[in-house]
């Protein structure tokens, strides 16, 4: 599998949000109005104007001391993206895959598609629509930078080496090597995405400790891959909605 990929080593991420700001700067995205709701995380979610977001999670560790996890959330640039599959049914060319990098890119044609379907197709809850216009937006892999020999803005700005980018096979290699190293320190360490995505996360703990959509559910073997991805996207979202509803009832 050629093309490019990100390897995001969250065990090195210090949550400084340099990547989040660099993304806004390069893409000239406006700031959204936010409030502090009792967390460092802000904005609260991805939006048409926020392609990249550090999600903050606190837990108590096994030794009774706090752990603080940072999850740089962004489009995973699936090798076979369910959003494209969905778009193709409605507007061919609405979502394209860049042949050299593998970047999954949304075009203006996508305006004609049903945004809700595209969003629901994503197993990672990434695409966001612009209010009023129906345009969809998300991370572009900074493909125009990559074409000019530059690193994506978020990778360029990362001070610790948590954000990595390069040829996909090299990133797979790096991810596997770091995963082996990390397991000694973090027994629950998880590596996601190396089979079918272009964004791999090394997590120090189980994915659910980071974020609901840190990882898609493993796929049943018998089912068609693409269909499965789409289904999972939907079911995960439903699950999340149910969970939210239950929470509301409880509180």
């Amino acid at each position: 599998m050629s093309g490019k990929a990100f390897f995001i080593d969250t065990t090195l991420c210090i949550g400084c949000r340099g990547c989040q700001i660099a993304c806004k700067q390069w893409n000239q995205l406006p700031a959204t109005k936010t409030k502090n709701v009792g967390s460092y995380q802000n904005p609260q979610d991805l939006s048409f104007y926020t392609y990249k977001l550090i999600r903050f999670q606190e837990h108590l560790g096994p030794d009774g001391k706090p752990v603080w996890y940072f999850f740089p959330d962004q489009c995973r640039h699936c090798v076979e993206p369910p959003c494209k599959e969905t778009a193709d049914e409605m507007v061919p060319g609405g979502i394209i895959i860049d042949s050299q990098t593998g970047a999954v890119l949304y075009t203006d044609k996508l305006k004609k598609a049903n945004a809700k379907d595209i969003i629901e197709a994503c197993p990672f809850n990434i695409p966001r629509a612009q209010k009023g216009t129906g345009y969809l937006a998300k991370c572009t892999m900074c493909f125009e930078r990559v074409y000019n020999g530059l690193l994506p803005a978020c990778v360029k700005t990362c001070p610790t080496g948590a954000m990595n980018f390069g040829d996909r096979d090299k990133m797979v290699e790096l991810a596997k090597a770091r995963f082996q190293e990390a397991k000694a320190k973090y027994p629950n360490a998880t590596l996601t995405g190396i089979e079918d995505l272009r964004v791999f996360y090394l997590l120090a703990d189980k994915p659910e400790k980071y974020y609901t959509f840190a990882k898609a559910e493993p796929m049943p073997k018998a089912m068609d891959r693409k269909m499965a991805m789409r289904k999972i996207g939907r079911s995960l979202k439903e699950l999340a909605r149910e969970w939210q509803a239950i929470n509301k009832l409880v509180s």
Binding site: K24, A31, Y40, N42
Partner: peptide
């Protein structure tokens, strides 16, 4: 604007124990 978006307001960090004692909810 981008920095303000990320940290928009003065906050005071406190333990869950202190918040409970004072009847304070997160985010208020």
């Amino acid at each position: 604007p981008w920095l303000l978006e990320a940290q928009p307001q003065l906050f005071v960090e406190m333990s869950q124990e202190l918040a409970q004692m004072k009847g304070i909810k997160n985010g208020e």
